[in-house]
Simulated scan of single mutants.
Amino acid sequence: MGTGDFRPVYHPAGPDHALRVALQDLRTGRWLAMRNLLESTPDWALWTQRTQVLAAVAAGSDTVHAWLTEEPRSVAAAVMHARVAVERAVRAHREKRPRAQELWQVAWEGCRSAAYASPQDPVPWVCLLALSQLDEGQRLEEHRLPPPGPMLFPGPWGLLAEADARDPFNREAYHRMLQFVYARQSGGTLSEAVNFVQWAASSAPAGSPLHALPLYVRVERYRREHGNERALDLHWVTEDGERDARRALHLWFDAAAPSTRSLLDLNHLAHALWGSLRFADAAPVFRAMGPYYTSVPWSYRTRAPQDAGGAEDVFLRARGRCLASGHEPGTESHG
Rank of each mutant, 00 (worst) to 15 (best):
E71M: 05
R321T: 15
E109A: 15
T189R: 13
A272I: 07
S202W: 01
E39P: 00
R50P: 01
E102H: 15
E220G: 10
A56H: 07
C322D: 05
V237A: 08
G207H: 05
A77I: 04
A100D: 13
D233C: 12
Q24R: 10
W47D: 07
S132E: 04
L160Q: 03
G155I: 04
A161I: 05
L263C: 04
P305C: 07
A183I: 09
Q24L: 08
T189F: 14
P124S: 03
A256E: 12
L263S: 01
S208R: 01
S61E: 04
P148H: 08
M1H: 12
E109H: 15
P258I: 10
M34E: 06
A272G: 06
V181S: 02
R144C: 11
L234T: 12
P146Q: 08
S113G: 07
W47Q: 06
A18M: 05
G14N: 03
H327Y: 15
W274C: 09
D233T: 13
W44T: 08
L140N: 12
A107P: 02
V57I: 13
R91Y: 06
V64G: 00
E70M: 00
L264T: 14
A165T: 05
M289L: 14
P146G: 09
H143P: 00
A248R: 01
L234F: 14
V296Q: 10
Y300H: 13
E102V: 15
R166I: 04
L54W: 00
G155P: 03
V314F: 11
V75H: 01
R83V: 12
F279Q: 11
R30F: 04
A82N: 04
L323H: 04
D167A: 15
T294H: 06
P214W: 05
Y182H: 12
A55D: 02
P156L: 05
A282Q: 03
S208C: 07
V106I: 15
E225S: 14
A308L: 14
L54H: 00
S202C: 07
A117Y: 02
R303N: 13
W44V: 03
H250Q: 15
L23Q: 02
A288I: 08
A85G: 04
H65F: 03
L264N: 07
T41Y: 00
L128E: 04
W44N: 08
S113W: 07
P156F: 09
P154Y: 08
H211L: 08
A59W: 00
G60L: 01
Y293Q: 09
K96M: 11
P258V: 10
Y116K: 14
L140Y: 14
A66G: 06
Y182V: 12
Y182A: 12
M1P: 11
T41N: 00
N195R: 10
R317F: 08
P205C: 07
G158P: 04
G149P: 00
M1G: 14
A76M: 06
A85N: 03
A56S: 12
Y182R: 11
F180L: 10
R112W: 12
V75E: 06
Q101C: 10
R303V: 13
